[in-house]
């Protein structure tokens, strides 16, 4: 079951984000590009919501609107009923490319938010110790980001966000670029944290196995312009464990999601895909053509 705001790690005050008829249009020179159109989207309180879609469908723009880095052309973004007007400590993001401040140590990075708030040093030290131990980086607190591996950098960024106890944590394809092994372990680590501490999480990815492994709810977006195409309830039990990837329910959900993604992706796909299908189909029809089956 999801966490209840364990001790000092979270106050249990989780947020709910709602997008109401959100449209985002970019204008450059004479070109107008409608990236998002009439998006209605709810990120449920305390749940891990995953957002998927083909490259270029506007996922990053959507989360930028939630974080307050950009503003919608039409429609509104609400956090617990109040409209979002700009960046804030209640909505923190872990970016695709590492956004650790390279000139600060892990400790300084993680405590940045607290220091900028003017918190007392003793209080900061306590909080930092707890969170650094949680992410397993306490011994590395005096190292610089360049001295850490990719996985460790991501964990540091998680710590930097979580220490401020935001109402929603947004993860923008955070494990992209990590090697497969580190990625797997980061997924386990991250979902473990979520299950233990809880919080409203919004996670973007284009890796389907990652999406299903993590999610309570999975949303698929359409391709240009972006809107919400479908919502899939991922009813796999928690705590999530890796062997679930081989369960039939997992594969069912996977196929469902894949079909939806395929529909959207084929809009942006050049020729070849259909023909390959045809080839396999043809092979099935006349088995003697398949030399492999000898």
């Amino acid at each position: 079951m999801t966490g209840n705001g364990q001790g000092r790690l979270s106050s249990g005050n989780f947020g709910e984000v709602r997008l109401d008829g959100v449209t985002k249009i970019y204008e450059k020179d004479d070109k107008r590009q409608t990236v998002l159109e009439d998006v209605n989207f709810l990120v449920e309180r305390g749940k891990l919501t995953v957002l998927m879609g083909p490259t270029g469908c506007g996922k990053t723009v959507l989360i930028n609107l939630i974080a307050g880095y950009e503003h919608p052309t039409a429609g509104s973004v609400y956090l617990d009923g109040a409209p979002v007007t700009g960046p804030g400590r209640d909505r923190l993001m872990v970016f695709q490319e590492t956004a650790l401040f390279p000139w600060m140590t892990v400790y300084s990075n993680v405590t940045f938010g607290c220091r900028v708030q003017g918190m007392a040093d003793e209080v900061i030290k306590d909080k930092a110790e707890v969170i650094l131990n949680k992410v397993g980086l306490f011994e590395f607190r005096d190292k610089y980001p360049t001295q850490l591996s990719g996985g460790m950098q991501r964990r540091a960024e998680l710590a930097r966000a979580m220490i401020n106890d935001p109402k929603i944590l947004i993860m923008d394809e955070p494990f992209r670029g990590l090697d497969a092994m580190t990625r797997e372990l980061m997924q386990e680590f991250y979902v473990g944290l979520f299950e233990e501490i809880g919080r409203t999480n919004l996670f973007i990815t284009h890796e389907i196995d990652e999406a299903i492994f993590l999610a309570d709810k999975l949303f698929i977006m359409t391709y240009q312009p972006g809107r919400i195409k479908a919502e899939i309830e991922v009813d796999l039990p928690r705590p999530r464990e890796f062997h679930m990837l081989a369960s039939s329910r997992f594969m069912e959900i996977r196929n469902q999601a894949l079909d939806l993604l395929y529909e959207e992706a084929s809009k942006a796909f050049a020729s070849g895909s259909k023909a390959a299908f045809d080839l396999v189909g043809a092979l099935m029809a006349s088995k003697d053509k398949c030399k492999r089956c000898e």
Binding site: P54, L258, Y262, A265, S273, A276, L279, L283, K291, R292
Partner: peptide, 21 residues
């Protein structure tokens, strides 16, 4: 490659492999 692109690649590879293993 994303999930969909991979699926297409797999189909392709299965196809060429079966034609001349």
């Amino acid at each position: 490659l994303d999930a969909v692109a991979k699926t297409v690649m797999h189909e392709f590879l299965v196809g060429v492999y079966c034609t001349s293993p």
